[in-house]
Computed example of a mutant assay.
Amino acid sequence: MNTSTVVLVFCALAVTFVSGGDMKAEMHAQVEKCIIETGVDPSVLKSLHETGGANADENVKCLGACIMKGLGVMAADGTVNLDKAKSLVPSDAPDHDALLAAVEECHAEKGANDCETAHAIGMCMHKKHVGPMD
């Protein structure tokens, strides 16, 4: 599966911040692991990107939480580690400041559970259109 597709789908989950080097490989491995754990069909991810994730089902929402937890951005209780999320924003990203501002604004989004929280963060970041996500 194309890692950039997942990045586009979740837009703000910590996944969107890890675009280079070793983190890209770590992200890809985490995405693959979480797809298996949640049972998400990778073929639905393109349509999710097209709708900004508005049509995400519970499994897709939990995929986001799984990825965030695997990358150390979300704790087991669903709280977001803002410092960790910010640390994943590449310092050489052309939109570095915009990404940091969006992370700062969106990290506090909350849902009824960790899956809903991950989805709310992703929706917030999608609305911010924070840079190219490839």
Rank of each mutant, 00 (worst) to 15 (best):
I35D: 01
P132K: 12
K24V: 08
L99R: 14
P42V: 04
G72V: 10
S19L: 14
S4W: 05
G20K: 13
E109D: 10
K46D: 09
V18D: 02
C115V: 13
V60F: 07
L45E: 05
G131V: 09
V7D: 12
E37L: 13
E50Y: 04
A118Y: 05
V7N: 12
V80W: 04
I36V: 14
K128C: 07
G21S: 10
E104F: 13
N2D: 15
A108K: 12
A101I: 12
A76V: 05
E58R: 09
G111I: 14
A112N: 10
H129L: 15
H126V: 00
L71E: 09
S4G: 06
P42Q: 03
G72L: 13
G21F: 13
V31P: 00
D77G: 05
D41Y: 05
E58C: 03
E37T: 02
V7I: 14
V103Q: 06
S4C: 15
K84Y: 03
S19H: 11
T79C: 02
A75P: 01
M125F: 09
A85E: 02
A98K: 15
G72E: 05
M23F: 10
C115H: 04
D97P: 06
K24A: 14
K61W: 08
M125V: 04
G21E: 09
A25W: 00
V89D: 09
A25C: 01
G72W: 06
E109I: 01
E104V: 12
D83R: 04
D114M: 02
H96V: 11
D114K: 08
D114Q: 06
